[in-house]
C-alpha cells in the first residue's frame, strides 16, 4: 500500500511538471506571451471572452508566482480554457469527445498487441533458433523500426485506396446517427479495423522482442533446470516457471511503451482521418490553437499516469515481494 501511495505522490509531481512547462513556455518565448498565445484569434473574440481566457492561463496583474498559482488553480479545477478554433467550446469538451475514440482505438490495440506479442515472444524464446523464432525476430525488427506514419500510409494505400476493402476516413459512416444499433456499431468496427490493425502491427513486435529476450535470459537460470529435472511437463515449465517471471520486466516496459503507443496513435489517426485526439491536435497545430495544444499535453500526461498506475497495481499482483513493502 505504501508503495502505491508513494507512486501516487510521484504522479502528482509529474503532472505539475507538465503544467509548469505549459505555464513557462509562452513566457520564455521572445515577444509578448499573450500575443503569442491568442494571436490566432484575430478580432473574433470579444474583449470579455479574451479577459476570461487570459485569467485561465494565469495572465493576471501580479508577480510571476501569483500568475503561476492562478494557472495551477484553473487546471486543478478542470478549466483548460476554450478552444480558439472551435470557439466557444471549452478545451476539455473538444478533447474529451475525441479522447473516447482514441482510448477505444488505443486500448484495444494495446491489449491485442501486448497479448499477441507476449505469446509470440514466449514461443520464440522456447524454440530459440527455430524457423518460428527467426520469423518472429526478423518480423519484429521490421515492424518496430518503421515509423508509425509510414506503416499507416502504406496500409491505407494498399487496403484503403488500391484494394478498396476498407473506408479511408471517419470513425463510422457519416450518414448514420450515433446509437446503440447493430448497424452503427458494425460501422464503427468496420471503420476502426484498419487503424487498429496498423497500430497492432507497429506495437506487437516490440512486446514480442522484450518478452523473448527476458525469457531467454531466464531460461539459463538454475530453477528452470531444476524444474525440468523434476520431470515437469514442457508447457508447465514454459508458462509457470519461465514466462511468469519474464513477464515482470515486460510489464514495466509496457509502462514506458504507453508513451510510444500514444504517439503512434496520434499519427495513425491523422492518416486515417479518425476523429480522435490525434486529428483534433493536427487541426489545432495547423490553426495554432494553443489552448488545445497545451490541453492535450495535460490530458495525455494524465492518461499516461493512469496507465502507469494500472501497471503499478498489476506489478503488485504479479510480484508478491512488493505487497509487504
Amino acid at each position: 500500500m505504501a508503495f502505491l501511495l508513494r507512486r501516487l505522490g510521484f504522479y502528482l509531481a509529474a503532472f505539475i511538471a507538465a503544467a509548469t512547462i505549459n505555464f513557462f513556455l509562452p513566457r520564455l518565448m521572445p515577444g509578448d506571451p499573450i500575443q503569442i498565445m491568442f494571436s490566432s484569434t484575430g478580432t473574433e473574440l470579444s474583449a470579455e471572452n479574451l479577459e476570461s481566457l487570459k485569467l485561465t492561463f494565469g495572465f493576471v496583474d501580479g508577480p510571476l508566482w501569483q500568475q503561476y498559482f492562478t494557472y495551477l488553480k484553473s487546471i486543478f479545477t478542470g478549466d483548460l480554457g476554450r478552444s480558439i478554433k472551435y470557439f466557444p467550446l471549452p478545451v476539455t469538451e473538444v478533447l474529451g469527445h475525441a479522447l473516447i475514440w482514441t482510448v477505444g482505438l488505443m486500448g484495444t490495440a494495446t491489449l491485442i498487441s501486448f497479448t499477441l506479442g507476449t505469446f509470440l515472444g514466449i514461443l520464440a524464446a522456447w524454440r530459440r533458433g527455430s524457423v518460428f523464432d527467426v520469423v518472429v525476430s526478423v518480423g519484429a525488427i521490421f515492424a518496430t523500426s518503421v515509423p508509425a506514419v509510414v506503416t499507416s500510409l502504406i496500409v491505407l494505400f494498399f487496403f484503403g485506396f488500391t484494394l478498396n476493402w476498407f473506408p479511408t476516413g471517419y470513425s463510422a459512416d457519416p450518414a448514420l446517427d450515433p446509437s446503440f444499433s447493430l448497424t452503427y456499431i458494425g460501422s464503427v468496427l468496420y471503420h476502426g479495423l484498419l487503424p487498429m490493425l496498423t497500430l497492432c502491427t507497429v506495437l506487437t513486435g516490440g512486446f514480442a522482442v522484450t518478452m523473448r529476450n527476458n525469457m531467454i535470459n531466464l531460461l539459463g537460470e538454475d530453477y528452470i533446470v531444476m524444474a525440468r529435472a523434476k520431470g515437469l511437463s514442457d508447457s508447465r515449465v514454459m508458462i509457470w516457471y519461465a514466462a511468469r517471471n519474464a513477464l515482470l520486466p515486460t510489464v514495466s516496459s509496457l509502462a514506458i511503451a504507453i508513451g510510444t503507443v500514444l504517439g503512434g496513435s496520434l499519427v495513425t489517426e491523422v492518416v486515417f482521418n479518425y476523429p480522435g485526439l490525434g486529428n483534433i491536435l493536427y487541426q489545432a497545430i495547423l490553426a495554432r490553437d494553443y489552448p488545445v495544444i497545451q490541453g492535450q499535453l495535460l490530458i495525455m500526461t494524465v492518461a499516461m499516469l493512469v496507465a502507469n498506475f494500472i501497471v503499478d497495481i498489476s506489478y503488485v499482483l504479479l510480484d508478491p515481494r512488493l505487497r509487504r513493502m
Binding site: I258, G263, Q296, L297
Partner: peptide, 9 residues
C-alpha cells in the same frame, strides 16, 4: 512518465 510526443508538439 510525461509523454514524449505530446511534449514535443
Amino acid at each position: 512518465v510525461v509523454p514524449n510526443l505530446p511534449l514535443l508538439l
